[in-house]
Amino acid sequence: MFHNLFEGEAVAEALEIIRTQFPMALWETFYVTVLSTLFAVIIGLPLGVLLVAGEKGGVLPLPPWLMKALNVLINLLRSVPFLILMILVFPLTRLIVGTVVGTVASIVPLVIAAFPFVARLVEGSLREVNPNTVEMAQSMGASPFAIITRVMIPESVPSLISNFTIAITTILGYSAMSGIIGGGGLGKIAINYGYYRYKYLIMFVAVILLILLVQLFQTAGTKAAVRSDKRLKK
């Protein structure tokens, strides 16, 4: 299948494409990923907080039906395959961006797919906070809001950073997939050249760049998480 990988002509063409199209594609992938993660966190963080604080016995108990609805919504969104979700949210994408194709348009389905995932990750992080620490804050007269903003979130920062790193690398993977239906970036190049035109060398280079991006995000995230954790005796 990959017989033409290093033929002179293929290499020359690949170099040309890499020179002309890759810088833009790399940039598109980068900003789509970062922006989508940012929006997913903006929506997912408060929801994750509600999932923990709102439950029975939490610091801000919410009506059970509301919690139930929240959980069902999150599970529902998480169970739709991303490719199908992209198509399902076309109307929303058109409403927000004005079009359903293009790099910017791909941010909408990415955020919709990622925020429930982020909410669950945040939920996991906040559950790691020692309940005794929360009780301490209550015993000092902290309001639910103060407990959330001054205890639960600050105490789980290292874990949140680790989890946001997982989120950003996952979203990077999804963003590559969005190339199939008109999203831009490295994913689009890999699919257009590798899948539709059998230019495997170009596909491989795009994939390698994606791998490097994942490595970059993961390394930076892990470093930041470790550095921020004051529980470690350094």
């Binding site: 020692n130 005794n132 000092m140 007269g141 902290a142 600050p154 105490e155 004051k230």
Partner: peptide, 28 residues
């Protein structure tokens, strides 16, 4: 909550905020 500022508590597990300095813990 106001009363609890006047009836404070210490615990077996100390329950300090682990991500904050001692000074910030006392400031809490």
């Amino acid at each position: 909550r106001t009363v609890r500022q006047k009836v404070t508590m210490i615990f077996q597990g100390f329950n300090l905020l682990m991500q904050r300095t001692c000074l910030k813990n006392v400031c809490f």
